[in-house]
């Protein structure tokens, strides 16, 4: 359903800061795949997700979603098919707008936005129910400004917004990294539930190897702008952190992996 064909991206080309962030990266995702993505700092994990989302245009290669070439499509047009949650809790919501207004914005992703009223009564009732399912008490604060919410609440809301209109592909970019461990676990649990309920094809970047092994049916590891490991099915289920580290050293030909990978 998603095909990355040898995509490359260099930031600041032609300067001393030139940085080859994606190096002829190829990847194919099947419908319903839940892929966890790991790798050290600067391995190109976020860059890959941003390339798919269209935050920037790739230098070469092509990106296909459901057989359609989206390589040159602007970010806002790709959004019709993509749900995204970012690492920074501030990034996914409109802080000066109400909770229900944020949800109403997300419900219209990919639709023409005209002069109809921005939110209907029926929608409010639906959102009330969906927020209640989150179990964070947000259903009683629907007209509160999102800027008043905590980081965890915002990430849960962003997740709800990303999946309110079922996306073809859900992109989670270290969406629990900025949260305290307890909240992070809660948001991960909600993520898992949402993905399963809707059967969403998902890519989740994480810095936590245990999470990467525990979640999803497929695991890829990145290094220097391309994929060095791709493990799925039974093999992934039986994986341990020690295995993963050993296989990473072998694949990348480097030793100094453990700290860098675990901590970054």
């Amino acid at each position: 359903m998603l095909k990355l064909r040898s995509i490359s991206k260099t930031f600041n080309p032609g300067t001393v800061n030139a940085n080859l962030a994606l190096d002829r990266l190829s990847l194919e995702l099947a419908e319903g795949d839940f892929v966890t993505v790991i790798g050290g700092n600067g391995a190109g994990k976020s860059t890959m997700l941003n390339a798919i989302a269209g935050t920037f245009m790739v230098d070469s290669g092509s990106i296909l979603l459901d057989g359609k070439d989206i390589t040159r499509l602007p970010e806002y047009k790709r959004a019709e098919h993509l749900g995204r949650v970012f690492q920074d809790p501030m990034m996914g919501t409109a802080p000066t707008m109400q909770i229900d207004e944020n949800l109403a914005l997300a419900a219209r992703r990919g639709q023409h936005r005209g002069l109809k009223w921005g939110i209907s009564k029926a929608e409010r009732e639906e959102y009330h129910k969906l927020l209640k399912d989150l179990g964070l008490g947000l259903e009683d604060r629907m007209s509160a400004k999102v800027g008043l919410l905590s980081g965890g609440q915002r990430q849960a809301l962003t997740l709800l917004m990303a999946t309110l209109k079922k996306p073809k592909l859900l992109l989670l970019d270290e969406h629990t990294a900025a949260l305290d461990p307890k909240t992070a676990a809660k948001v991960l649990e909600i993520s898992q539930k949402v993905v399963e309920k809707n059967g969403l094809t998902t890519m989740m970047i994480t810095h936590n190897m245990r999470d990467a092994i525990a979640f999803g049916n497929r695991l890829i590891m990145m290094d220097e702008g391309h994929i060095v490991l791709d493990i799925s099915g039974e093999e992934k289920k039986n994986l341990t952190v020690a295995d993963l580290l050993a296989r990473f050293s072998k694949a990348s030909g480097r030793e100094e992996t453990d700290d860098k990978l675990l901590l970054s």
Binding site: A53, P74, E75, Y76, K77, A79, E80, L82, R84, F86, M90, M91, G92, T93, A94, P95, T96, M97, E101, A104, L105, A106, R108, R109, G110, Q111, R113, G114, L115, K116, W117, G118, I119, M161
Partner: peptide
């Protein structure tokens, strides 16, 4: 208060979010 107006308010408050929600 309309859909278009809401999308403009979202643009003003967080462009990243607006684009991720398909707003030009």
């Amino acid at each position: 208060g309309t859909e278009l107006g809401c999308s403009m308010r979202a643009t003003g408050t967080n462009q990243n979010m607006a684009r991720a929600q398909g707003i030009n």
